[in-house]
Amino acid sequence: MKKLINSVDSVVTDALRGIAAAHPSLRVDIENKVVFRADAPRPGKVGLVSGGGSGHEPLHGGFVGHGMLDAACPGEVFTSPVPDQLIEATKGVDGGAGVLHIVKNYTGDVLNFEMAAELSGDEGVEVATVLVNDDVAVQDSLFTAGRRGTGATLFVEKIAGALAETGAPLAEVARVAREVNERSRSFGVALTPCTVPAAGKPTFELSDTEIELGIGIHGEPGRTRAPLREAREIVRVAMDAIDADLPLSGETLVMVNGMGGTPLIELYIVFAEVEAYLRDKGATAVRSLVGNYVTSLDMQGFSVTTCSLTGELTRLWDAPVETPALRWGR
């Protein structure tokens, strides 16, 4: 394993020190592992808190700032944050209008956020929760852990963050966050596994001629293994899965997301195929993001996330945002 680290045990803390040093618009509580907006809490504004395992950068710390999150809690690599962290963040962003927890649907994240919400409630902070579960590779069923939260998390954080910035009440911010999730779908593909620092070796083995279809964002293998094909063919598998679940139509927000180790030139090749697929279905990619946003350490591959837009959602997407990883309009 080759990694730019000082030690396996200090990966998260050392990265937080870097984030603090690089971004004066953030206040980083290194002891409690919380990345705050420097001006949090904002009186009268709903606070947005997200969090999850580390290894998905820039998610979530890179999305803290004006028009998006008020605080992010990084856990250990691929491990959800602990309740203490989340409570610290929740109290630290509460400006009296309540706090929205944005939670990716994984058992660990759900349990730790639930405990934090309950304990923050005991301390007088009103908390609402939105679960993100956009990954169509996983069958949703009462008898499973349900779908994973992946790329749509960014859409939820951006759009709900924009609404919160206007002074909208907690119930409204939560409603729009849920609407974004319901209108979003994702599918991921891996060309290589990734290497978790504490494990020291790749999470699975894949030959030069194979890919994994239907991966999540934790280096886990996907639903199936398949031979490597042209980008066009791989995109078709991903988009067919999305379209079968929620037929693509109308104005669509599209993200082609790298898993951390994919060259941008390949992501643009993928985007061209995604755009053509949408056009074929009568849908239009009216807003787009291409880059590494919701990653899985050093994995090569991509995920595609679509969100069927409404006028309101497009306006909120276009609203100004100023965070380390996403900024426009200001």
Partner: peptide
């Protein structure tokens, strides 16, 4: 364990 472990195993 709840405070330090994280993941699902911490709360469980």
């Amino acid at each position: 364990l709840i405070r330090k472990v994280g993941g699902a195993s911490g709360p469980l």
